[in-house]
Amino acid sequence: MTYTDEDILAYIDGEMPAADRTAFETALAADADLAARTEHHRRLGNSVKSHYAPIANAPVPDRIAEMLALRDEAPAGDTLIDRFKAWFAHPLAMPGASAMASLAIGILVGAQFMPLQTGISGDTSLASANLAAALSAADGTQAWQMPVTFRDETGRYCRAFRGTETGTSGLACREGESWQVNLLVTGNGGEAVGYQLASSPLPAIILESVDGLIEGDPLDAEAIETAAQSNWME
C-alpha cells in the first residue's frame, strides 16, 4: 500500500494505531523511498524540537516568576507566609538579609541544569552530596541553613534551605533515600536593593510553595531531631 505524509507523520509521532504499525514497519524495511521520507521527517521533527528545548531549561525571568509568587489580594487570615514574614522581619532573625536582597530567580522543576555550586548535582534535580548532607542534618550545616522544615500532604518531609554564602535558597523534599530539589532560587549576594521581601531570608516564591505544600504546622526543633534520627523516613 502507499503511505501518505500524514501516515508517515502519525507513525513518527506515535499516533499510528498499533494494528497498522507492523504493516508500516514491514513496508519501511522493503521500500527505500518510504524509509527516506520517514527518516527525513523524523530528522526535521528532532531539529525543531531540539531548537526550542533550551528555552524550557533556561531560568524564567524574575518578573514572570514573581507574578506567581505574589498574591492578587492580601490574604484575609493568618497564613503561614504572613507568619514567616513576621518572624523574619524581626531584627534578630535577619542576619543574611542584605545578601538576599538582590535576587535572580530561576525555577527548577524536574530534570534541569544548574551549576554544581548551587547545590544541585549534575543534570538531575537531586541535591548534591553537600546539600543533601545539610538537608539530612537536623540543624543544617554552616553552608546551608534550614529555616523551615515541614511535612506535606503525603507525609513526606520537606525543608526550605538557604545557602549562607551564596544567597541561593530553595525547597527540597525527601524522596526515598535522597532529597529532591523542587524549587531553587539563585541569589547573587549583591548589595541591598528594594526587593519585595528584603527582610526575609527566604524569597516569597519559596514561602508561597511552602504554604502550598505544608500539612499542619512546621516541625519544631524536637520533631526535626526525631525525623533526622529516623533518617527522614515517613
Partner: peptide, 16 residues
C-alpha cells in the same frame, strides 16, 4: 494548602 497556592504552584511547574 489553599486553592490559590495550589494553582500557582501548578503554573510554576509548567512555566518553563
Amino acid at each position: 494548602p489553599t486553592k490559590d497556592a495550589e494553582f500557582r504552584a501548578g503554573l510554576m511547574e509548567i512555566l518553563p
